[in-house]
Write a protein that binds this DNA or RNA. Sequence first.
DNA 1: GAGTGGTCTAGACCACGGT
DNA 2: CCGTGGTCTAGACCACTCT
Lengths: 253, 253
Amino acid sequence: MGTTQLQTVPEPKYWHLKTVLTEALDSEFTVGEILPNERELAARFGVARATLRQALEQLELEGRLQRRRGVGTTVAPPRMGVAVGTEEHAWPSVGGDAWEPADCEFAVPPAAVADALETGHGEAVHIVRRTRVNNGQTVAAELLYIPQASVPELTGIDAPSGPARARAVLRELQRREATGQDRAVELGSAGADDAKALDRLPGAPVLVVTTRYFAEGRTAALSVATYRADTCRLTFGDAGGVEIHHTPERRAS
Amino acid sequence: MGTTQLQTVPEPKYWHLKTVLTEALDSEFTVGEILPNERELAARFGVARATLRQALEQLELEGRLQRRRGVGTTVAPPRMGVAVGTEEHAWPSVGGDAWEPADCEFAVPPAAVADALETGHGEAVHIVRRTRVNNGQTVAAELLYIPQASVPELTGIDAPSGPARARAVLRELQRREATGQDRAVELGSAGADDAKALDRLPGAPVLVVTTRYFAEGRTAALSVATYRADTCRLTFGDAGGVEIHHTPERRAS
DNA sequence: GAGTGGTCTAGACCACGGT
DNA sequence: CCGTGGTCTAGACCACTCT
């Protein structure tokens, strides 16, 4: 079966639209430029707005467009590479990339998390919430589950919650030199709280990175981090990750 | 799953619908079970079919449902963990997981690929196409770009194309002991050919894994693999990857 | 042929951002 | 306030799969 498809299959309109728009983006638009609004684009292409939107949704999924209610549709910059799995716990901000502790509580985690942590199902753990900010944009929201056993020397004299508490727990965890292994990536959709943290609408596509941290042979912590799928390219390994662009980009002047 | 009333809340209907359906899936359905058709579901919830479909689309994106035209909507099994980055080139089928060479050609790659390979822009390379089959399902389609310099001893006496040729190129590449590094993962949508290989519709969400292989200090090959985002959870590292389930699943009896 | 999901239309109203 | 994208409706027809 050759790659040439000269079949008489009717290509869906939104698919053809997407192709046309992609070519237009490559040749006639610059990063950050605002597209005509949906009603005008639909009229220009002679399709219903819903059909036009189907094409725009795909392009947004692929990171080519950015749409914001009340503002408009803009041409998105190439996805930013976000390193995963190197020095996740690095405290100092390196190259405009940093984790910012947001909150901490001591509560019972979901059953599935308790299983992975090998703790009892009713057992409370430290739950640290933090966000990852890269070049001014929040690219990820993370929930870190840390059993009390992993931070035994943590006393209760600090603040019971809030960023200060989060910092204290993380500092204690870091003293144990937990190393991340057993990492998994899958597609998900942002929940209400994650969506707010990531400045997206609920249901926005996210890449869910689940990491199990080990220290001294035991599971020291479990991290569930949701990354914006539209703007992020997750990179692994020591180097910066491969970057394959659709087309040599023109830059806004 | 009774007829629940939708309140006049700022929460979108499809979002609430998704929540209700999620709970129903957890409690009242078993893996593989067929849901009522869209028209009936829409009527049962008192919404338009388009709205119902919006909820189903999200659930399919999250890997909870599987929809097939002409068949129906079924409850999807938990995502399968697919190891990435360990023994990608492993020849023998291990545990029902294997790469199957499909084709090979000698052609000029896209400019972006040539850049990553550090070859000239007009220079032809070997392009191997193969698919990854896991437990009977095709979970990934890959394009492997291999410069002639990486397989210098490859002679032209073999078949010029086809699976046999693909096997020969891969064998030669493996002799160089290329190791994968510099890996990146991002969200994409399946093209026409990938969609066909993955048994999905064009535009289906995929996880694009880009890997640069090194041998003797040089870039030996570049791999662009698209994994089905609905059924796959990509796992990294030596172990099997973390598995977080929504809910303790019931099994079809 | 019957039944399913996939595409498409032409409207309407809502929520939000900037003025 | 206006203009934007987001949600929603009630239809219609098409492509596909199974029997």
